[in-house]
């Protein structure tokens, strides 16, 4: 199964890279950009065929390594279906 993990900074955590992108967009003449937050997308190919088990495994991967839950949130997308 193909999975995609989106890792984003938690609301309230300062994102200097997002701020720099926002500033650069303004410099390029893109007006009306009121906020930019930068995150990561991690794509995984899984041997697991059971979606429920795959979600559980992905959740564990996020908690242990893929995200730092002190500062980041994560969202799991499995075969194009985002998790609740």
């Amino acid at each position: 199964m193909k999975a995609r993990v989106h890792v984003t900074l938690k609301p309230g955590v300062l994102d200097p890279q997002g701020k720099a992108i926002e500033h650069a967009l303004g410099t390029l003449g893109f007006t009306g950009v009121e906020g930019v937050r930068q995150g990561k997308v991690i794509e995984l190919d899984l041997a697991e065929t059971n979606p429920a088990q795959a979600r559980k495994n992905l959740h564990d991967m996020c908690e242990k390594l893929l995200a730092n839950t002190v500062i980041e949130n994560y969202a799991i997308e499995l075969d194009g279906q985002s998790a609740p």
Partner: peptide
């Protein structure tokens, strides 16, 4: 140790 070390504010 608690907390996290993020990208420098000045990038």
């Amino acid at each position: 140790l608690p907390g996290a070390l993020m990208r420098n504010a000045g990038l």
